[in-house]
Structures are given as C-alpha cells and as structure tokens.
Amino acid sequence: MKTKNIMIVGVGGQGSLLASKLLGKLLLTKGYDIKVSEVHGMSQRGGSVVTYVRFGDKVYSPVIDKGEADYIVSFELLEAARYTEFLKPGGKIVTNTQQINPMPVITGAAEYPADLVKKMQAAGIDVDAFDALKLAEEAGSSKAVNIVLMGHLSKNFDFTMEEWMQAIESSVPAKFLELNKKAFMLGRDA
C-alpha cells in the first residue's frame, strides 16, 4: 500500500498528541509500518503545532511535506488555513470551526482573516468544517475536541468501530473512557 499521510494541526495545549497516539495504536494493530512525528518543547506553549502520522507498507520520512497530506485534521480554523499547501491533489481538510486568536491578533498587530471556510472552498479545497468544540462540551468536556475530530475523521476510513473503540480504550484513562466514546460517536455522526 502506498503511504497515507495524516497531518494533525492545532494550537499548543489543545491535545493533538492524544489524537496521534490513538491513530498510532489503531494502525499498529492493523500491521502497517508507521511513523508519528510530534513537536515537544517551546511550541507547546500556545504556538502552532503540527503532528504527522504516516502509514503504509514501508514508511521512511517521519514528516509530511507540502503537497503530500491525504488528510489535514485541524483543531482550529486559522491553523487549517495555514497548512493548505500541505494537501495533495484530492486531499481533504477536516476542521473544527473554533477560532483561537493568536497573540499578533490579540495585540492588534494582525487580523484574523474572515470567512476562511468559504475561501478554502473557493480555492478548490475539499473542506469538511464543523463545530467540534460544541460536540465535545455535549460529550462532557471541552478537552474532548481531539476525540470528536477523530470520530469525524473515522468516516473516511474503513476501520471497524470495534477497532476504533479498542484504540480509544488503550489511549485514554479508564475514568474518561465513556466520555471519550461519546465524543467519538458525536464526531462520527456529525
């Protein structure tokens, strides 16, 4: 199988590491070769963060480059717009519509661009945008945005529900399991 590329982008502290952990667990049980590249350190302090998940028969590079992503999963709208160049032809962006102002916008040095979903669509990009924060809160915690997004992404793959649920079980603490399962289903049904 040709290597598949999933980029997970967001704002440091939003929980993208859990999303990549879940994907890694799932893909390992499916027998793929896998590479998951993360960012630690300074960027985690509210900066723009990127995680690369690659799987296939044999994966060499740990990173995804411009023009290569089959999917970009974005925790925040501006971050989806930041990485559009990484999509491959026919690739798809799955994004939360939540907006978090970066410091240059907060201080007035820059503006948060308006109508980003429309602009991405106008540029010919396949965008699947929805309010993952609302669904996470419905599931019981705003922190479950990561699992809501994974639920929504899951519609694009033919892994079984059982396989996804097993991956969730091995990635989250037992006391948050029901909340996360609910978050996943809300995202999948959205």
Binding site: G47, R82, L87, P104, L116, K119, A123, I125
Partner: peptide, 14 residues
C-alpha cells in the same frame, strides 16, 4: 504544493 490562500495568515508564536 497544494492551494495557498491569498490572505495573510497571522503567525502563532508560542
């Protein structure tokens, strides 16, 4: 590369 938007995307420093 994939499509690039015309808008300036503000940086998000830590």
């Amino acid at each position: 590369c994939g499509a690039k938007l015309d808008d300036v995307i503000p940086a998000r420093p830590p």
